[in-house]
Design a protein around this nucleic acid. Structure first.
Lengths: 255, 255
DNA sequence: CTAAAACTATGTACGTCATACGTTTATATG
DNA sequence: CATATAAACGTATGACGTACATAGTTTTAG
């Protein structure tokens, strides 16, 4: 773990690592290892066994090298994690240019949502500074395009993009953490859906009246959700936000 | 780190830990230690030196006990973290009953935003399942009240609450990670604001057209933001969402 | 063509961490 | 009072990140 004041040149290192212009012509043996290879191995390990299984030693054996060899290409595990997260994010989807704001945003959000569910470990990688990775920035850029095209000002587009990123990230964080099943002592597995019931019995309706009221609300059937459409838990909020955004640009167009 | 399938009874333990009905009358020596004391010590350490400084040994010495004594009251560090996060969150603010939806939500979001900035380490605590802590549920309940009062259906209120929680969480995560200052090799510290410029020079405007366009947008002066009012980066999105929510309930009221 | 310089890969070693386990000590119940 | 039981402690283990010294390899300077 990097201490807080050793952030010194980590940032510079992040940048040169992430944007490494492939240079060659130095002395010493040709390196058979590289940042890319290491990052890809890290992604493979995290995909297979999760973030907690991702150790330098594990990556090294995965690649068939000694543990310390990695440090010839990567200054620390923290930095490697950052690179791995960017690599794992992959390229954003191409958005249909003919689509309107709502369609574009929904498509973007759906893709990000799907990505977070394919690689939940990305959500566990600690965020140490503003996004600077090529892929992270590409995702941001893709979202900004329809926002700007819809007529938002620069600052507004930035804020809207931040809002949407945060929503998908945060919702996915909660959603993926609830995905696992638990085994009770009696051996019967139960999901987080039941968890709500357990909690419902624990809490005093006097202290949590709204929670108790909402608890009765039926949970949407997850199987009825088509792929490509946002699930209700995410879609409702995004749609309300888009309603507000659209009327904002409409009012703006009048003045 | 807890492996993914050892989640077995962790959940049960979480619940009994978090909702511990104080029982007394067992054998053995009176325990001078308790979950609450340990959690409070953990909060103190994290407040002082961050999450990465929070070790069992550190907490123990902080309290003047041996490391292993803690395990008489807490089954694992993961669980302790969960409790500490709930304790650190504290009680939600009392919302003005006379306030309308927009005012209430803004007040709630502002309080949560402030809380995350006071204790950034809470955002680093890995989310292992749906919120079950007394304080976490209290925050949720407080938000649900005005949403229900405004006329939202149960499922809608839940989705809206999730949306808002995710937004504040996610935005704060990015905001607090940018709060630190970095020292460059030349010794001149620079903030993440400059970071944008560094990146701006790295990227190819062809690949990131929208980013480049937005980059010119002036950054709001942070000092001009009054306390109690949401900062623009958070407020713009929340306001657009509220616009959409309000028109949603208005249309609903007609049918 | 040689030798120095620089870089890669490896092995060893250290400090820190969470936590399993055994021992001692104090207490409440029979 | 005796005994079961839990609290606190000390020691020990295995995994981890990574500093450092070494050996080996390739490029470049003379």
């Amino acid at each position: 773990m990097t201490t807080r004041d050793s952030k010194d040149s980590d940032l510079e290192r992040s940048l040169t690592l992430l944007w490494a212009g492939r240079a060659r012509g130095k002395r010493g043996p040709r390196s058979r290892l590289s940042v890319e290879l290491i990052a890809q191995a890290a992604v493979r390990v995290a995909d297979a066994d999760g973030l907690e299984a991702l150790s330098m030693q594990r990556i090294a054996t995965e690649l068939g090298y000694s543990t310390m060899s990695l440090y010839n290409h990567v200054p620390s595990k923290d930095l490697l994690l950052e690179v791995a997260a960017d690599v794992g994010a992959g390229a954003p989807p191409e958005l249909d240019d003919a689509a309107d704001l709502r369609q574009s945003v929904r498509q973007w959000a759906g893709a990000l949502w799907a990505g977070f569910h394919r690689r939940p470990w990305i959500l566990r990688v600690p965020l140490d500074h503003a996004p600077v990775g090529p892929n992270q920035l590409a995702w941001l850029d893709r979202l900004l395009r329809p926002l700007l095209a819809a007529g938002l000002a620069g600052g507004e587009a930035r804020a809207a993009a931040l809002h949407l990123t945060a929503v998908v990230r945060g919702t996915a964080q909660i959603s993926t953490s609830m995905a696992g099943e638990y085994k009770r002592d009696d051996g019967i597995p139960h999901t987080d859906a039941d968890l709500t019931h357990v909690v419902a019995e624990l809490i005093d309706p006097e202290d949590y009246p709204a929670l108790t009221a909402v608890h009765a609300a039926e949970v949407a059937d997850r199987r009825s959700e088509q792929p490509g459409v946002l699930p209700f838990e995410l879609g409702f909020g995004v749609d309300r936000f888009l309603d507000g955004l659209e009327s904002w640009v409409a009012d703006r167009g009048v003045s």
